[in-house]
Computed example of a mutant assay.
Amino acid sequence: MAYFDVAAEAYVQFMGRFSLPLAEQFADVGLAGVDPSARILDVGCGPGMLTGTLAKRCGEAAVSAVDPSEPFVAATAASYPMADVRRASAEELPFADDTFGAALAQLVVHFMREPVRGVQEMARVTEPGGRVSACVWDHGGERGALSPYWKVVRRYDHGAGEGALAGSWAGDLTRIFTEAGVRDVVETELIVTLDFATFEEWWRPFTLAVGPAGAYFHSLNKIEQAGLVDALREEYGDGPMTVQAAAWTATGVV
């Protein structure tokens, strides 16, 4: 996940503003019907946005979390020292079979090297009757948190964007879960709405080189970067602005 070889604080500034409110809604889905005493796994935890929500609801000691990024693992472990936080990929989870009552992956499936294998691993470490859940932005439907940015970029670069990433269009998470052997899969959508007082407040985190959007900006030369910023400002004005983001969510039973 070279897109995320960045400081934890950069990710928090860029995506944390969306993923924190998303985590509250996603936890409602991923913990539904799960035994309150069960252990819970956060797959692809990043700097710990979902981890914190799970710790608050289930108790920090009941939560385990993994991520392949060392800075993210260090940040999550520092924030939640009673949680079991490890460096690992979704495709190779370092836990025994049937360990958890629920496994959740927020904004991760579309960056897994092998999404079906990653969900299979989540199911393997979840006990029979436990719940496996994932959510991803609706990049394919151009309703994701970053869609306002990519909408303008594609005027100049028609092939740019994240719409082809796994799980990021209607029904694709269900396909991945079904191929992974998860039962009774239900797919829904979650909505997050954020208000920004100024254009700069919304735009500045895109310059931090986080994820495909940040990497794309840094791939441009200085003249191209300035042109893109001008085009974005022309489209959205100086603010205030509101971004409404939709995320597909799939949940099922092991």
Rank of each mutant, 00 (worst) to 15 (best):
residue 54 L to K: 02
residue 54 L to M: 13
residue 56 K to Q: 13
residue 58 C to Y: 00
residue 59 G to A: 13
residue 63 V to L: 01
residue 63 V to R: 00
residue 64 S to I: 07
residue 65 A to W: 02
residue 67 D to M: 07
residue 69 S to Q: 15
residue 70 E to Y: 00
residue 71 P to G: 07
residue 75 A to L: 09
residue 77 A to S: 14
residue 79 S to E: 10
residue 83 A to R: 02
residue 85 V to H: 04
residue 86 R to E: 06
residue 87 R to L: 08
residue 88 A to T: 09
residue 88 A to R: 05
residue 88 A to W: 11
residue 90 A to N: 08
residue 90 A to L: 11
residue 91 E to A: 06
residue 93 L to G: 11
residue 93 L to F: 12
residue 95 F to C: 11
residue 95 F to T: 12
residue 97 D to G: 04
residue 99 T to V: 02
residue 99 T to I: 04
residue 100 F to E: 06
residue 102 A to F: 10
residue 106 Q to E: 09
residue 109 V to G: 06
residue 110 H to E: 11
residue 110 H to K: 02
residue 112 M to Y: 07
residue 114 E to M: 05
residue 114 E to A: 13
residue 115 P to W: 10
residue 117 R to P: 00
residue 117 R to N: 07
residue 119 V to S: 00
residue 119 V to Q: 00
residue 119 V to C: 00
residue 119 V to L: 00
residue 120 Q to D: 01
residue 121 E to C: 09
residue 121 E to L: 03
residue 123 A to F: 08
residue 126 T to M: 07
residue 127 E to L: 13
residue 127 E to F: 01
residue 127 E to W: 01
residue 131 R to M: 12
residue 133 S to P: 08
residue 135 C to G: 01
residue 135 C to E: 02
residue 136 V to K: 00
residue 136 V to C: 15
residue 138 D to H: 08
residue 139 H to K: 01
residue 139 H to E: 14
residue 141 G to R: 12
residue 141 G to A: 07
residue 141 G to W: 09
residue 141 G to P: 08
residue 143 R to P: 00
residue 143 R to T: 05
residue 144 G to R: 05
residue 145 A to R: 00
residue 147 S to G: 11
residue 147 S to N: 14
residue 147 S to C: 03
residue 148 P to I: 10
residue 148 P to V: 13
residue 149 Y to S: 05
residue 153 V to M: 08
residue 153 V to S: 13
residue 154 R to Q: 14
residue 154 R to I: 08
residue 154 R to V: 04
residue 154 R to Y: 05
residue 155 R to H: 10
residue 159 G to D: 14
residue 160 A to P: 08
residue 161 G to R: 01
residue 161 G to N: 04
residue 164 A to L: 12
residue 165 L to M: 11
residue 169 W to N: 02
residue 178 T to I: 04
residue 182 V to F: 04
residue 182 V to G: 00
residue 186 V to I: 11
residue 190 L to I: 12
residue 191 I to V: 15
residue 191 I to E: 14
residue 191 I to L: 13
residue 192 V to W: 05
